[in-house]
């Protein structure tokens, strides 16, 4: 039996007395590669924030690595890439190396210091993502695509068991995007890293993810791509041609 990484049961989350997520239940096992998709406002980011314990559900619960999400302590096993690029202050005086080092803090005990081994880990991930030459550069001097790669490096440097990536490729050019996805696939197949990839691009997610969780305030579909492509219910929901496009790209 595969190890359960995330278990959500009857989860309902409310903003200003409006249900943003209704009665959500699902399980994610070790090594799963989930594409979390849905239209804008469907509750994808809300679900991620609930999994991470930032939001308290009005009913139900989420367990991550066996712990209630509201009292998570195993942060060293989780790598999270938030969505908001525009949030970062472009004038923040910090180097690429300093930012990537923040990804290592969850594995450290007090006082959290960066050592030589950490510097090696930082160099390795920067090399892998093709930004080793930017190590000493100021974050604000980089292009949006380069900044995004720095934040990806910060998430991956810790080699987490669970990766939660909220729209990670929006600022990347097509070439970098492809190498990012191959890197992710490599982590998933070689290291059995569990991946939750949030995207609104349902058309291309099939190329990468093994399972699909389609959300629109409630779970519309959760299962493998094969199941999705054969599902009559999904054919009715999306229309046969849309379903065909999604499934065609998966091949």
């Amino acid at each position: 039996m595969s190890t359960k990484i995330i278990t959500a049961e009857n989860l309902t989350v409310r903003y200003n007395s409006i249900n943003v997520l209704s009665n959500i239940s699902f399980k994610i096992s070790k090594g799963d590669y989930i594409g979390l998709v849905g239209p804008n406002g469907s509750g994808k980011t809300t679900l991620i924030k609930t999994i991470l314990g930032f939001l308290k559900p009005v009913s139900g619960y989420v367990r991550v690595f066996g712990e209630d999400s509201l009292y998570l302590s195993k942060w060293d096993k989780i790598g999270y890439l938030p969505q908001r690029m525009s949030f970062y202050n472009p004038r923040f005086p910090t180097t690429v190396e300093e930012i990537v080092s923040l990804g290592l803090l969850s594995k450290k005990s007090f006082p959290k210091r960066i050592n030589k081994q950490d510097i090696n880990a930082i160099n390795k991930i920067l090399e892998l993502l093709g930004i080793a030459n930017l190590k000493k550069k100021l974050f604000g001097e980089l292009s949006i695509g380069q900044q995004q790669r720095v934040l990806v490096a910060r998430t991956f440097v810790n080699e987490p068991e669970l990766l939660i990536l909220d729209e990670p490729t929006t600022a990347l050019d097509p070439e970098i995007r492809e190498s990012f996805f191959s890197f992710l696939q490599e982590l998933n197949s070689n290291k059995n890293t569990t991946v939750i990839l949030v995207t609104h691009d349902i058309g291309s997610i099939g190329k990468y993810a093994l399972k699909l969780l389609y959300l629109d305030k409630e779970i519309i579909f959760y299962g493998s791509f094969d199941e999705f492509c054969k599902s009559e219910k999904m054919s009715k929901y999306f229309g046969a041609s849309a379903q065909h496009i999604i499934c065609h790209r998966h091949v």
Binding site: W75, S101, S106
Partner: peptide, 22 residues
């Protein structure tokens, strides 16, 4: 000096700092 990296993390990105167990 004791909390330098935590302070830096919270100042740069509070949400990410939370997911580092800070």
């Amino acid at each position: 000096s004791l909390y330098y990296n935590e302070i830096f993390s919270v100042t740069f990105d509070e949400e990410f700092a939370k997911t580092s167990g800070i």
